[in-house]
């Protein structure tokens, strides 16, 4: 069985985001870029399934500009067997990505497509659901536990829903999107970095996959959250109560 994992290159989780002065987006030049943390979790899960004998190959895919190759290299260093880079310099939105993924799935024929539940940059949380729809595959989103039964060709997924867990059983092939508590991703070890050097990253374009990139969506503007006002130190409980009553109107 083959597993495909979609990974996205995003601004590093720990970087303080700055909005461009013209509000067209966020500043990405000279900013540390890393693998989306949810994608890391998805890849880790694929690797664990493979290590426990549930899969024979893990293929990492990423789409975007040339630098996505760095993120794929990280994926290979974590243990993915090979990678595919869909080279596209412009903006990509979930529906286009889902279409590209569908084309890749049709070419590669994995039994499982794993994705992070969302990317930390645009917070869309749409790609997994859309690609499942396009493929007409069952989906298990927000997975916090995944158990594969190879014999019966089903996956049992615990989903994190409001106030608890929902357990669903999916017939393979299926799409699973991963939540934060699913696992703790491994580090890229030197022996694996060394091995990754000889692994193949195949480059294709959306045209090669017969996917037309167009968007019905336009980003109008990106703005920073309003600045928080500085707090004040009150000198007495009476003053605090007075402020809560007359300024904040909460008591």
């Amino acid at each position: 069985m083959k597993i495909m994992v979609a990974i996205k290159r995003v601004i590093d989780y720990a970087v303080k985001i700055r909005v461009k002065p013209d509000k067209s987006g966020v500043e990405t030049s000279n900013v540390k870029m890393s693998m989306n943390p949810f994608c890391e979790i998805a890849l880790e899960e694929a690797l664990r399934i493979k290590e426990s004998g549930g899969a024979s190959e893990v293929v990492a895919v990423s789409m975007g500009p040339a630098q996505c190759v760095d993120t794929l290299r990280t994926g290979l260093a974590m243990g993915a067997d090979r990678a595919i880079h869909v080279d596209y310099p412009g903006s990509l939105y979930p529906l286009s990505i889902a279409k590209i993924l569908k084309a890749l799935v049709e070419a590669e024929k994995p039994s499982l497509l794993l994705l992070g539940k969302q990317a930390i940059d645009d917070d869309c949380n749409q790609t997994g659901q859309m690609v499942a729809g396009l493929l007409k595959w069952p989906q298990g989103t927000f997975a916090s536990k995944v158990v594969l039964d190879e014999e019966k060709q089903v996956a049992t997924v615990d989903r994190e829903v409001d106030g608890g867990l929902e357990t669903v059983c999916l017939e393979l092939p299926a799409v699973i999107t991963t939540d934060l508590r699913l696992n703790q991703p491994r580090y890229a070890t030197l022996p694996n970095i060394m091995k990754a050097k000889s692994k193949v990253i195949k480059k294709v374009t959306p045209q090669d996959l017969n996917v037309e990139i167009r968007s019905d969506l336009e980003v109008v503007q990106v703005t920073e959250p309003p600045k928080r006002k500085a707090g004040v130190i009150v000198s007495s409980i009476d003053e605090l109560i007075d402020k809560l009553k007359n300024e904040a109107h909460v008591i």
Partner: peptide, 20 residues
Amino acid sequence: LLQSMDSGLVTDGVLAQDIN
């Protein structure tokens, strides 16, 4: 790092992939 591994100075190691 790879050279140091080959020569045996380093026996194992990890390279940070993100700020975290």
